[in-house]
Design a protein around this nucleic acid. Structure first.
Length: 317
DNA sequence: ACCTGTCAAGTCTGG
DNA sequence: CCAGACTTGACAGGT
């Protein structure tokens, strides 16, 4: 079995390469009208260029798993701004897509916590659809929508999980079919645990992203290995290697917070579990130290007996 | 050069 | 109904 590792958004090994430069609505309104659009485009051009630099960095390190920043385009879906971020950057989007293909990178998006389909307020669902569209359009512009996922959480519980899950199934119908086709759902550290998330995924035929840190923070009564075959089966429709989110607790007290680096022992236990299933997986490292945390974990895992590093970002077990 | 308050959006808890 | 927590990085303005 093979494990590929990757990281989220920013590469700390590169100087000044944030792909998430922003302009808030407040700042936008403070600019003279004739400068506003120029500034939006400037920020976007910079984020796209930084993403390009990161893709080359990934290639140089043979890293094939990467989550792109959701903040590539500032105010892309703001109701009073909403601007065309596709046409002015047609060439740039295409170039990113070509590099992603050329370097065999598995790219994904993970919209923010306000993108959810459980709310009983209609505008929340409308905003969620808008935000999902924004992410989908970026993937389309890069020509990689068929090979990518947009991952979100189920959402809040509103004091009644059962009713709320039903509302999720109702609200998700508002999402255009082609976008729903490429979405995934991740188990949550506070609300929907592995068992509950898996049930929703099965019902909607949506692949499930397993987050092992969230799982430890929000345990189901059963052991994780009992769920793994079903979780991994949800990826078969898309013929994709299952994706697992990796992080470890900051402290015992702040258990849910992400530690800067990933604790090797926290993960190696899980890797031993995976070994029994002998299946390829991709690890998305979610830690404050980003690529450094990923490199650290790659080296840590490589030192385990029976684990061999066969490429910069790939381990064979 | 460093520090601090602010920012479109979400829910949850407590008052 | 509202404030603060949760949590996030980036940024502008102040010292």
């Amino acid at each position: 079995m093979r494990i590929r590792l990757g990281f989220v958004a920013n590469a700390l090994g590169l100087w000044d390469a944030s792909p998430s430069k922003t302009m808030t609505y407040k700042r936008y309104t403070e600019l003279p009208k004739n400068e506003r659009m120029d500034r939006l485009k400037e920020v976007t051009a910079l984020n796209l260029n930084h993403t390009k630099r990161i893709l080359y960095y990934l290639a140089a390190h043979e890293i094939e798993v990467y989550r792109m920043s959701s903040s590539l385009v500032p105010l892309a879906t703001h109701p009073y701004v909403k601007w065309d971020f596709l046409k002015p950057f047609k060439k740039e989007w295409q170039e990113l897509g070509e590099l992603i293909r050329q370097f065999n990178i598995r790219a994904s998006f993970h919209p923010n916590q306000f993108t959810l389909f459980t709310s009983d307020r209609e505008h929340v669902t409308e905003n969620a659809v808008e935000d999902m569209k924004y992410h989908y359009q970026m993937l389309e512009a890069m020509g990689i929508e068929k090979d990518s996922v947009i991952n979100i959480h189920i959402g809040g519980t509103y004091g009644d999980k059962e009713t709320t899950v039903e509302r999720f199934h109702k609200n998700i119908k508002k999402l255009p079919a082609e976008i729903k086709d490429i979405m995934t759902l991740e188990n949550d550290d506070k609300t929907y645990n592995v068992e509950e998330t898996l049930a929703v995924c099965k019902k909607e035929d949506i692949p499930m992203v397993l987050d092992i840190h969230h799982h430890e923070a929000n345990l189901t009564t059963e052991k994780i290995e009992e769920y793994i075959p079903d979780i991994f089966d949800t990826w078969k429709r898309r013929n994709m290697v299952p994706k697992v989110h990796i992080s470890s607790p900051k402290t015992d007290k702040a258990f849910r917070s992400h530690s800067d680096f990933v604790d090797l022992h926290f993960i190696s236990e899980f890797v031993q579990v995976l070994r029994k299933f002998d299946v390829d997986v991709d690890f998305m490292i979610e830690a404050k130290s980003k690529d450094f945390a990923m490199f650290d974990l790659i080296e840590g895992l490589s030192s385990i007996r029976g684990v061999k590093r066969i490429r910069g970002g790939t381990l064979e077990l």
